[in-house]
Simulated assay, not measured.
Amino acid sequence: MSKTAGAAFSVRFLRNGDQVFVVRNVIDQNGNGAALFQVVDPTSGAVSPDWSVAANQPIVQLGVRSSAGYTAEITSVTWAYAGVTLNFTLDGSTWVTASNDARFQARINGNYYELKVVANLASASVVANQQITYEVNYVCNAMTDKVQGNVDVLIQTAGSDSHILQITTNRVEIDDTNTTATLTAVGYYGTDPVTIGSNGYTIKWYQDGTEISGQTSNTLTVTRAMVEGGSIFIAKLFLNNNAVAQDSQRINDIADEYQIAYTPTNAGSNYVGIGHNAVYTLSVTKNGSAYAGAVSYAWQVFNAVGEQKTSGTGATVTITPDHCLVGSGEGAYHADADVQVTATL
């Protein structure tokens, strides 16, 4: 009888870390999943949701984890918004405001470093997507290094006739203690929230490209039994049976007995850029040690909204700029890609 293990990992389009990975959650003050998304009326400047209201304020939460199982700890984080470094004098678990931008607060919350948005980022003059970037300094196995990354703040203007869908989650990793993750699909048409199950709107959920039967709610509970190492979940929004928007979210079970390791083939193969591919070699560990038995691999590459761009087999995965492309024509753009791997033992 064969055993399968899974993994899902992101490949940065610009730059990624090595074998210490940033665990990034976007949550609200109660620990529920939140969306970095606002809609704005470019004439009046009215914004929704209002991030000056505490209950609406999103928190970007960063932690680090070693793929080899070593203890990893963040020593500092440098945050930036729209290319400008945010200046903080941290005071432990107490929220402090950036001295050069009162829209942001930061703190250290146990093993996590957190950035909270406490004011609206969209306005009558800011109607395009923005970006929060971070540089994480960490220590792991007596070695120090840093990892850089970014998260997009999506902004949509009032009067837009387009749909948008985002999946929020309370966590991206589950284990023996945190055994489930709750995915919530949040949809908008222009500036108006979409109610799933009303006015012709329906939703379908997919796991690793296969539809999950019977899942028609805007929420999906992911359990350890579903994941087996790691999976990519996709939500598709339909209007009168026509797909109008979709998004994806990866969930990993870091306590599974079998884990798939993904190692860049060299120091320059851990990111994708124009004219530059990322190349990873796959391997399996059992309870932290290299697995010595026969393994066969199958993998899929998805773009940032969950569209499958390619698939294949074998222990080497190559991700190209085309795999990171979202959309077509003048509106096309490059973003991070997700890779889902299944190992059969």
Rank of each mutant, 00 (worst) to 15 (best):
T4C: 09
A5T: 15
S10H: 10
F13V: 05
F13T: 00
G17F: 02
V22M: 07
A35N: 15
A35D: 11
S48H: 01
D50K: 03
D50E: 07
D50H: 04
S52F: 06
S52N: 06
A54R: 00
A55N: 11
N56E: 14
Q61R: 15
L62Q: 02
S67Q: 14
G69M: 06
Y70A: 15
A72Q: 06
A72K: 04
E73G: 03
T75G: 09
S76E: 07
W79F: 05
W79T: 03
Y81S: 07
A82D: 15
V84S: 14
L86T: 02
D91A: 13
G92D: 12
T94G: 07
W95M: 08
A98P: 06
A106D: 00
E114N: 07
K116C: 07
S123Y: 05
V126L: 09
N129F: 05
Q131S: 10
Q131N: 11
I132M: 06
T133V: 08
V136Q: 02
N137K: 12
N137I: 00
Y138E: 01
C140A: 10
V147R: 03
V147Q: 02
D152A: 12
L154K: 15
I155K: 03
I155M: 05
Q156N: 10
T157E: 10
S160A: 14
I164W: 01
I164T: 14
L165A: 01
Q166Y: 03
T169H: 11
R171A: 07
R171H: 11
L183E: 01
L183I: 06
A185W: 00
D192A: 15
S198H: 11
N199S: 14
G200F: 12
Y201V: 10
T202D: 10
Q207E: 14
Q207I: 02
D208F: 11
D208T: 11
E211H: 02
G214N: 13
T216Y: 13
G229A: 12
G229V: 13
I232M: 08
F233A: 01
L237C: 10
L239P: 05
N241W: 04
N241D: 15
A243S: 11
A243W: 07
V244I: 07
A245Q: 02
I254S: 08
D256I: 08
Q259N: 12
Q259G: 05
I260Y: 06
A261P: 00
A261M: 15
T263W: 12
T263M: 05
N266K: 01
S269T: 10
N270F: 04
Y271M: 13
V272H: 01
V272K: 02
V272D: 01
G275F: 07
A278D: 04
T281I: 00
A290Y: 06
V295C: 04
Y297I: 09
W299G: 02
W299L: 04
S311F: 12
G314D: 10
T318D: 09
T318G: 06
T320S: 14
C324E: 03
L325K: 13
L325P: 01
G329N: 12
E330H: 06
H334W: 12
H334G: 03
D336I: 08
V339I: 15
Q340F: 01
Q340C: 07
A343R: 06
A343V: 09
L345A: 06
